[in-house]
Amino acid sequence: MPKPSDLLQGTLDLLILKTIWQEPLHGWGIARKIQVLSGEVLSVGQGSLYPALHRLEQQGWITATWKDSDLGRPAKLYALTKEGKKQLERELQSWKRLSSAVELLIENA
């Protein structure tokens, strides 16, 4: 499976959860938003986006419903659940710890 080489293992979950934390989005929207908001730096391979979405749904962090969308037809919209919000908090915390540690290392080494 094509994994985004520039994404750390587990970061994809964080990106997806963060992307939809304010409003529900469909798969296409999530992929676009990650690409746009990261200044076209990050790009999620579609081959890994959908399995990740399905996994998160199975785990109960997000729910999916078919609704009318900005695409002009019904699409599967993913939204955070209450537990998903908590999970996002946890993922953010650990990401911050990790990135500051990496930064510290880079500056001082």
């Binding site: 499976m1 399995p51 990740a52 399905h54």
Partner: peptide, 18 residues
């Protein structure tokens, strides 16, 4: 081409659903 193998993606989604 960009999307890659659709069947592989589907298969993986199925796996994710256990």
């Amino acid at each position: 081409r960009q999307f890659g193998s659709m069947d592989a993606a589907k298969e993986e989604c199925r796996d994710m659903r256990r």
